[in-house]
Design a protein around this nucleic acid. Sequence first.
DNA 1: GGCGCCCCAATTGCATGCAGTTTGGGGGCT
DNA 2: AGCCCCCAAACTGCATGCAATTGGGGCGCC
Lengths: 252, 252
Amino acid sequence: MAARSTSKTSESSDKVSVICRALRRAIIEQALEPGAKLPEDALGERFGVSRTIARHALGQLAAEGLVELRRNRIAVVATPSWQEARDAFDIRIELERLVVRQLAGKLTKAQIAELNAHVDAEDGARGGADAVSIRLATEFHILLAQMTNSPILVRYVSEVAYRCCLTLSLYSRPHSTECAINEHRAIISALAKGDEAKVMDLMHHHLDSVANRALVAPTPQRGRDLLDILAPYADEVTSDRVVKLPKVARRG
Amino acid sequence: MAARSTSKTSESSDKVSVICRALRRAIIEQALEPGAKLPEDALGERFGVSRTIARHALGQLAAEGLVELRRNRIAVVATPSWQEARDAFDIRIELERLVVRQLAGKLTKAQIAELNAHVDAEDGARGGADAVSIRLATEFHILLAQMTNSPILVRYVSEVAYRCCLTLSLYSRPHSTECAINEHRAIISALAKGDEAKVMDLMHHHLDSVANRALVAPTPQRGRDLLDILAPYADEVTSDRVVKLPKVARRG
DNA sequence: GGCGCCCCAATTGCATGCAGTTTGGGGGCT
DNA sequence: AGCCCCCAAACTGCATGCAATTGGGGCGCC
């Protein structure tokens, strides 16, 4: 059988869940770019809820790593470092290999059809906004994870995929999604054939190539924090005041 | 090098973080057993904070999978199904193989000493409470993860390890921790030697054996929810009222 | 005696209010 | 002009208050 037992969905129709979903989507579609401020008041007003709820939602998103929350400071959309991006992809590769290992040869016809339909949708969106393509590609992987019927796996794959999505939008050049779509098709076909080793390899190289295409190099100019860039230089300096020197505006 | 760059710790000294830590520990040490009720009022009063804070903490723990949160219902300590436990261990194996892969041959002498000291502590606690042994063993794995200096990896390994800890307390017989301690020592030594393949294998089998020793069988009587057990039987029945029938007390 | 219904205490969902902290900008001093 | 300090606006941290929902005990009915 392909499906296990029934699984309770964790995210219900709470107000905070609604806001979480909205913000998550806004973030991964770059409507909110990394570093964007997220004041509780503004969120509350925008979504028609109190600060309490907005705050709670920010807490959840912070737990997912999409938002940075510093005490007494305005929450901001997370700005993962290049190293964190690389780490996220490494984890993602392992998790998604596990997904396809569990799925190989166990998919129903309906599920395969669903996957194909999704890739068709990706294909259809090729002319549109880059952000939408990235989101659809990400959702393909989440769809796969959901088919394992393992709520834990779904959660982790989703989270790490969203994080990768976020970093893609940060470090990626305007990229071509076509080969990714072909790779998705190849994965589906290998899954249908039930070739476990093959599909694990396909997934591995698929994600690896996406990561390598995107995370081209430590690209210090874009996305990295000024203080991080200067850190190694500051190590040479002994004065206490060195940290006060770069009094430049930090994005924004 | 063994360490990467500085890493901000995500969990600061918020009141909610404090409560989270306290509850987490209480849960994995079985002071709060699965199914235990966690009313916001009671928590707030116990920790000297308002319901708002207790509520927020419960939200975080729910995101980690340690607590179940149903709308308009009292929160309870999560009761993972046997299948979820198995899934958690599968994920954990992959994640921790990644950990030791990154760590093999890259540990400083100080780090190795720290690991050995921890295992000594595990050894010392062998006579004490089972729950403490389990916690220490879990913390060994988290300590390893922390040495990768990858905050994301730390977070996921911690979470999934805590979940496993929770299920161990649910399904495990009073178990002997000795072999686990020896396996920990073996892992440290392989890490020091830098034998990547060996240490990945050691970790894999270590976790696998822990899982197999604990998750002996689907043991339907203990831990599984009555409704889950009856679910397949209920499928045969057409009446709407079937779901109301098992009006028995559901764990106390 | 057992079954079902109803009502109330218990509890959650959420908004608002108040106090403490941060920010950033104007004015004064050098 | 440049630097610094101080203050007010903005924002967060948290508690409290009120409406809505639940579930369990008690009562009546079978």
